[in-house]
C-alpha cells in the first residue's frame, strides 16, 4: 500500500456521505428554484447548481487530505511517527496530495454524472463545440447597408448557429425590433425572418449538418433602421457532432480539481509554519478565492457546461496558465521545506 493509493481510497471512502448530501441538497435546490430556460442560451441551466456539490466535495476532500497525512501542517502529535520515514522531497505530502485528488476526481465524476442524469435540459439542448465566426470587414450592420458576412471555413461541419446582434440606439430612442435573415453559402437557414430587440437576445438556428464557407446576415426590409453591432462571439457555429451531456458535466466538475490542487500545493509550502486551524482556513479559502478571481477555470467551465458548450473546445487555457504557474512555483518551493518539525 503506497501513500497515493492509501490516500485515494481513504478519501473516496470518506467522501461517500458528503456526496450523498451534496447531490440531495443540490437536487432539491434545483427543484425549488426551478432553474430552467426557454431561450437557446442556457441549455443545461440547472447544471450551474453543480457548483454546490463540487465545492462541497472539494472542501471535504481537502480536509480529509490533511487529516490523512500528518505532515501537511505543524502541531500533529502523530507526525512524530512518520516525519523521519516519509519519502521524497515533499515528505509524502505530494503523494498524499495526488491520492486525495484522485479520490476527489472519482467523487466529482460520480456526483456530476448522477447530477447531470437527474436534471432535465431545456428542449432541444445539445452539447456541441462552439466556434466563433470572425466578421469579414467591419462587424456592424449600418442602417442603410443590408448585409454582413462571417468566415465559417474553420468551423468544419456545423448544425447550429447562435446569433446575438447588439442594437445601438441613442438614449431615449424607442426600442424597436430589427428583422434579420441568415444564409449559409447563399442558402437560407430558416423559414421566416427573426427579430432582434435587446442586446442580450440570442437566437439559435438549427439545420441539417453541412460544411459552410460563409455565413451571411441580412437585414429584413420593413423594420426600423437601427445600427447593429456584432462583437466577437456574436455569431457562433455549433459543431455537427453532438457530445455527451453527462461527459461534459463530469469534465466541468473535474475542473474543481484545479483549485483543490492549488490549495494543497500552497499548504505544502507553508506546512512547517501553519498549524491546524490556519491550515483549514487556507484550504477552504484558496479554492473560493481562486474561483472568484477566476485564477482557475472551474467557474467558467461550469458556466460553459450550463450553456451546452463542449468543454474541450473552450478557451479555458488563460486561467489554467495562472494555475500552472502557481502550482509549479508552490511545488518547487515546497520541495525545499525541511522535514524537521
Amino acid at each position: 500500500m503506497n501513500v497515493v493509493r492509501a490516500c485515494a481510497l481513504r478519501t473516496l471512502r470518506r467522501l461517500v456521505l458528503p456526496s450523498v448530501f451534496a447531490i440531495g441538497f443540490a437536487w432539491l435546490a434545483t427543484r425549488a428554484d426551478a432553474v430552467r430556460t426557454t431561450t437557446g442560451d442556457a441549455d443545461f441551466a440547472a447544471l450551474v447548481w453543480l457548483h454546490v456539490p463540487a465545492l462541497w466535495l472539494t472542501g471535504a476532500a481537502l480536509l480529509i487530505a490533511i487529516d490523512e497525512w500528518p505532515l501537511f501542517h505543524r502541531g500533529r502529535e502523530d507526525a512524530a511517527w512518520i516525519a523521519r520515514i516519509a519519502p521524497g522531497p515533499w515528505h509524502g505530502c505530494a503523494a498524499a496530495m495526488a491520492g486525495a485528488l484522485l479520490g476527489l476526481a472519482t467523487g466529482l465524476g460520480i456526483v456530476a454524472a448522477v447530477f447531470a442524469a437527474l436534471l432535465t435540459a431545456s428542449e432541444g439542448a445539445h452539447v456541441r463545440a462552439r466556434v466563433p465566426l470572425p466578421a469579414i470587414g467591419e462587424p456592424t450592420l449600418v442602417p442603410n447597408a443590408g448585409t454582413i458576412r462571417f468566415d465559417a471555413r474553420d468551423a468544419g461541419s456545423i448544425a447550429q448557429l447562435d446569433v446575438r446582434a447588439t442594437p445601438i440606439r441613442r438614449v431615449g430612442d424607442p426600442i424597436l425590433p430589427v428583422g434579420l435573415e441568415v444564409f449559409a453559402d447563399g442558402a437560407r437557414l430558416h423559414d421566416a425572418p427573426f427579430e432582434v430587440a435587446a442586446s442580450s437576445h440570442r437566437v439559435r438556428l438549427r439545420f441539417e449538418a453541412r460544411d459552410v464557407e460563409q455565413i451571411e446576415v441580412r437585414r429584413s426590409p420593413g423594420y426600423a433602421p437601427v445600427l447593429l453591432s456584432f462583437p466577437p462571439n456574436a455569431i457562433e457555429a455549433g459543431s455537427a457532432t453532438e457530445r455527451s451531456a453527462i461527459g461534459n458535466a463530469i469534465l466541468a466538475a473535474l475542473s474543481y480539481l484545479l483549485p483543490a490542487t492549488l490549495a494543497l500545493a500552497t499548504l505544502c509550502v507553508l506546512r512547517r509554519v501553519v498549524r491546524g486551524p490556519v491550515a483549514v482556513v487556507l484550504l477552504l479559502g484558496v479554492p473560493i478565492i481562486a474561483t472568484v478571481l477566476e485564477l482557475t477555470p472551474n467557474g467558467a467551465a461550469i458556466d460553459a457546461c450550463a450553456r451546452g458548450r463542449w468543454l474541450p473546445s473552450e478557451p479555458l487555457l488563460t486561467s489554467s496558465l495562472v494555475f500552472a504557474i502557481w502550482f509549479t512555483l508552490a511545488m518547487v518551493a515546497s520541495a525545499f521545506v525541511g522535514r524537521r518539525r
Partner: peptide, 9 residues
C-alpha cells in the same frame, strides 16, 4: 524509533 506520541492512521 518509537516516539511517545499517539499512533498515526
Amino acid at each position: 524509533v518509537q516516539p511517545d506520541a499517539k499512533l498515526p492512521f
